[in-house]
Design a protein around this nucleic acid. Sequence first.
DNA 1: CTGAAAGCGCTTACAG
DNA 2: CTGAAAGCGCTTACAG
Lengths: 338, 338
Amino acid sequence: MSLTIKEIAARAGVSKSTVSRVISGKGYTSPEARDKVQQIIEELQYKPNAVARAMVSQRTNNIGVLIYRRDHPVVSHPFYGKIVDAILATAAGMNYSVFVTTDHDMSLRSADFMMEKRVDGLILISRLQQNVIDYIKNFHVPYLMVNGSTDDDGIIQIVNRDEEGGRKAAQHLYGLGHRRYFVLAGPQAHRSHFLRLKGFRCQLASRGIPIADESVVYPSASTFEEGFNMMRRHYEHFRAGGYTAVFATNDTIALGAMKVLAERSVLVPEQVAVMGFDDIEFATMLTPSLTTIRVNTEEMGRQAVTMLDRLIRQDVPQAKLIEVEPKLIVRQSTATNN
Amino acid sequence: MSLTIKEIAARAGVSKSTVSRVISGKGYTSPEARDKVQQIIEELQYKPNAVARAMVSQRTNNIGVLIYRRDHPVVSHPFYGKIVDAILATAAGMNYSVFVTTDHDMSLRSADFMMEKRVDGLILISRLQQNVIDYIKNFHVPYLMVNGSTDDDGIIQIVNRDEEGGRKAAQHLYGLGHRRYFVLAGPQAHRSHFLRLKGFRCQLASRGIPIADESVVYPSASTFEEGFNMMRRHYEHFRAGGYTAVFATNDTIALGAMKVLAERSVLVPEQVAVMGFDDIEFATMLTPSLTTIRVNTEEMGRQAVTMLDRLIRQDVPQAKLIEVEPKLIVRQSTATNN
DNA sequence: CTGAAAGCGCTTACAG
DNA sequence: CTGAAAGCGCTTACAG
């Protein structure tokens, strides 16, 4: 059927071994043999069968990306999608192909998939269940976690400095003169949301402005709908509280809150300043555009693939935790009028 | 290293053949042998090596997704990302793993990747260069195109009924009483944008309202930035024209235009109604939320995988063109005040 | 510098 | 019902 090395060898009048050598560039080959073989390969557009290669080399040059999302799409997720994009770009540059798998329910099935496919390594994104992690550990594949949340500290992680990001957000709002802050904090079981809130609070506390518990509400998911619902539910309380600034632990929650403010004709930023976290693409599109803390997703994706490649090549990195730096992005939602 | 069938066979005291039979469920095996083997497999968490299986079965159970985007991220693309998500979901249900590849430059390299990996089939998304298609044709892999744009009519395509969608958009605006329409039409080389504009125009022409050429501007890319820039550039012309409705051939262009209107304090929908096309996730999030024509991306993804699977299994479908139905989604940006 | 042989981990006829 | 053998398409020592 498909062209094989045997066919190439026959046409070139050499052995399979020789063809293999010219393809890999390893071992000696006479210039004549080499030219002849290369010409035929070119002519017939022969591509070595990667499956066969993987069979003998015990390397597939594939990596797997496993994302856990309970109820939401994943690749089109405005934040995780960016990480996946960065992974794809870096992986392509390093000659890895990538399997993308998502998992809604019992995550073992999709993990199995990966194990059977014999990927060289695995990138876990977001909050994986511990049982999935334990399961993966049983096999020999190297793996690491991006923006994860786990108690398992044996695991290499690529994360954003979320606590510092929270501090930057607080510092920005504080610098604008705000003193009453209303916070929408996503699921605290997730490392990111927890640390963002913590950093935000700590920074303000250090300025002598502790955030009261009544000023913080907790959307049960980091989604637009939840941000919207929680802001609606607590709107009266919010208005009564004299808050001049809203901080949400991610952009989509912030967008949900802004939608409620728009409904109520509350002007942003004139009456209330709003900040999010992540810097998703939409943040620039709405009016007013959203001030946020940008997570360097490109760097995270790049580090993930680079580190995984090292793990695969047994060049074990020392660091268990790789952190990327967040950055304040000021836009209209916190602009001062002038 | 890794557990092999040989090891399982040894432990169970049977031959590799028998182990293979109990795993595949094909051929006869005595209940005793079966139980014993299954127990050991369970105990050791043995997973058959998919690479070896692919080697002999000549089937990888992998499919590849190849997306072309000149300068933009791809997986996080608000529209294509949704299609990819639908593909992932359907593929998982049919026991395919999926490689996702994007391609910025010369697209042959990433296509090569796929050919070497020996995917069982390929899904091409968006506008691929003809040379890539020609290249892919050279190999034996089945492939089809989703939301594509090609002159090549030998190719199986899954598309949205874009022309009809354009008509529906026109019908909606017409029904609201609008008579002066300003249109931002994305790259006309792309089938979707071309047909959406065409449908829109035809529908109105049939109502006796031809759209003059001066009422149509052409963003050079289907992006927010281009929508924004073009609306800005033509703003004076737009104001002078007495337009009461804006139609953009996709949502992100519409969002760009809306941003300009917001800047100029033009009220949507009170002064100007705005419609997009696609129904990206963000359409619901901004205020006013965007009225649009929803493309059934789930159905497209599902059809793509289902059809590709049939191609792979040689169950060749007759239809060259599979169309999915668009749907009008009315939101705030065209709401009538009441 | 080159070819024959063995082997990667499976599956699939084919004997028995 | 079961096992030995061949083979999928490569690569890698090993002789020559």
